[in-house]
Design a protein around this nucleic acid. Structure first.
Lengths: 110, 110
DNA sequence: TGACTATATGATTATGTGGTTATATAGAGA
DNA sequence: TCTCTATATAACCACATAATCATATAGTCA
């Protein structure tokens, strides 16, 4: 049954998705977008990165449909297109905390 | 509230986790391990990759505590240490299928 | 001990990509 | 039109790392 989680066909797609999420700045951007749509300028300020860099990562996120874009006036407003990404982050955070917990236990308990 | 999902401290850790999962062969290995503990030799055959390559990826997975190892006799038996990874894969698969669905809808419906 | 099997690891190469810089595009307002 | 602002993109560099090859380590059995 666990076999159903991944089949050879979408294995690459799944890996790609994970790789997209494997860049701190991109996570930072997504995290910022968790609060609603944001302009590039806002994301540049929020992340402390450069405008071209943020734009490039937004392009990547857009190309893989993790965000969507809406141009209004002079600005581009980005927003998360599938909130499931935050579910992913939560699970990973849970994993990490559990791992830290185990490390702590290993120190104190033997 | 969405802010709680990621904070600057674990942002790198989360990204690293995702990056670990962002390699097809590693997903293949994990997927194989979903059925229970496996030896390196078995994983080499199951994945069609080379022994050194599989061993190296197992080392990576082990270093990041995604799998655990137990040596018995001449062999090393690997198993998944946190089944939450499969939850991740399921969500990502869901995302991808949803994206495909939307593409299909875009073709037919407008 | 020696032969065999299983696994790990070091060195090397090739490729992908994140970040930077400079520049292009495009809309708003005068 | 010109200027300003916002965003995108192209060229480049630097670094990380996946894959390969060769070799080392370690356990089993005779």
């Amino acid at each position: 049954m666990a076999k159903t989680a991944l089949n050879p066909q979408n294995l690459d797609s799944v890996a790609t998705r994970f790789r997209i999420l494997g860049v701190p700045l991109r996570l930072q951007i997504l995290n910022e977008l968790a609060n609603g749509e944001r302009t590039v300028t806002h994301l540049v300020e929020a992340t402390g990165s450069t405008q071209p860099n943020v734009s490039k990562h937004l392009s990547t996120l857009l190309a893989h449909r993790l965000v969507k874009r809406e141009k209004r006036g002079n600005s581009a407003f980005y927003s998360v297109s599938d909130p499931a990404v935050f579910k992913l982050c939560e699970i990973v955070c849970g994993n990490i905390e559990r791992a830290l917990e185990e490390e702590r236990a290993a120190f104190t308990g033997g």
